[in-house]
Simulated assay, not measured.
Amino acid sequence: MKKELTIEAIQLLKRLIATPSFSKEEGNTAELIAQFLIKHGVAIHRDLHNVWAFNKYYDSNKPTILLNSHHDTVRPNKDYTRDPFQAEIIDGKLYGLGSNDAGGCLVSLLATFVYFYEQKELRYNICLAATAEEEISGTEGLESVIPKLGTLDFAIVGEPTQMHLAVAERGLMVLDCVAKGRSGHAARNEGENAILNAIEDIAWFSTYQFPKVSEEFGPIKMSVTMIQAGTQHNVVPASCDFVVDVRVTDAYTNEEVLEIVKQQVSCEVNARSTRLKPSSIAKDHPVVQAGIQLGRATYGSPTTSDQALLDIPSLKCGPGDSARSHTADEFVYVSEIEEGISLYIEMLNQIVK
């Protein structure tokens, strides 16, 4: 069964590649995913461009594992030398937009879900969610589906990690800051220069070290990336706007970091959003231990995924290589998909049986 599912998964990935699925335009790939599952007798649920399902013998008294990956893609960049929608296997590489990020992961999780779908007396329920809008951190993808899935105990999020175990992922906050002053004529000793006030806070952002340091990532990183002030050369500016990019580690929540910042600086601080949270899973968690026993390494992932939307322990793991994501002439090795399906099944077998 595993061999047949692997062949079908690769064929499905070819069809997905050939079907444009830019973020917010994933309706056709959602249909392909739905038909794949229906073909295997799976009772599916759909909303917007999201497809999800539960194992056949779902038991509300049992804990539930979420298997999640996305089927939207970025737009192809100008450096492509191949047709991004032409799925071709050459020298063991399956080329095409979304093949690596995250098509290989998605079809591997779909095959894994089907493998377990009709099995009885599992210790865990298994929920599959193939979701939209990951590439734009949209609100109509996984975020809109989570309330419909019931209680979830932990998740495997399919992103290209070479099937190693990303046990932590940085969160992201963008802070809009406004330093205040008082306008005046630049030639006279008038006004209070908001730029000078901003410099004091910018220096703090550049040097402050949060007390708690992540085992996986080290310290939180804050970078001032944009600044705007003044209207003309002879007017002391009354305000100075600047933007701070904050990469939050699993040592803090976004809300905790925001509160510390507000206590330490004199400028006004507003977070555009706190929804892209840092995430982690304990190294002694059964799914992590299962992966370690299969020879997989643990690490902290610097990239952001739909894992940031989950409030449960979550492991990022999947076939492919993150370094290939969003690159021209994107590809995934067929052997990576074959290995991915086998390893997903072996990991889950250690947990659900």
Rank of each mutant, 00 (worst) to 15 (best):
G184L: 08
R188N: 06
V235T: 15
S183Q: 15
R170E: 13
V167A: 08
A194V: 00
N125D: 04
H185S: 10
N189M: 12
A168S: 14
E190C: 03
W204S: 05
C177M: 11
T139E: 15
N125C: 05
S239N: 09
A132F: 08
E135L: 10
L152V: 06
P219D: 07
D153V: 00
E169Q: 14
A198R: 01
L175T: 12
C177E: 05
M222S: 10
L142F: 07
F154T: 05
I220S: 01
F242P: 07
R170V: 13
V174I: 14
E190V: 00
P237C: 03
L142P: 02
L172W: 06
N197L: 01
M222G: 06
A186I: 09
Y124K: 04
D201F: 11
I195K: 02
L175A: 13
E200D: 14
S183E: 15
P147R: 12
F217S: 04
G150M: 04
I136A: 14
E140I: 11
E133I: 12
D201M: 13
I195N: 05
G191P: 07
D241T: 10
A198P: 01
E143M: 13
E143R: 14
C127S: 07
F205C: 05
Q209S: 15
G230M: 13
A166P: 03
P160N: 01
G138E: 06
A179Y: 08
T161A: 00
A129Y: 08
Q209C: 04
S144W: 06
H185V: 09
G218P: 05
I136M: 15
A229E: 13
C240S: 01
E192D: 13
V236Y: 08
I220Q: 02
E216L: 06
P160Q: 01
I156L: 15
K221F: 03
A155R: 00
E135V: 13
L128F: 04
E216Q: 12
D176F: 09
F154W: 14
V145T: 08
S206A: 15
V178R: 09
G138C: 10
I126G: 03
A179M: 07
D201K: 12
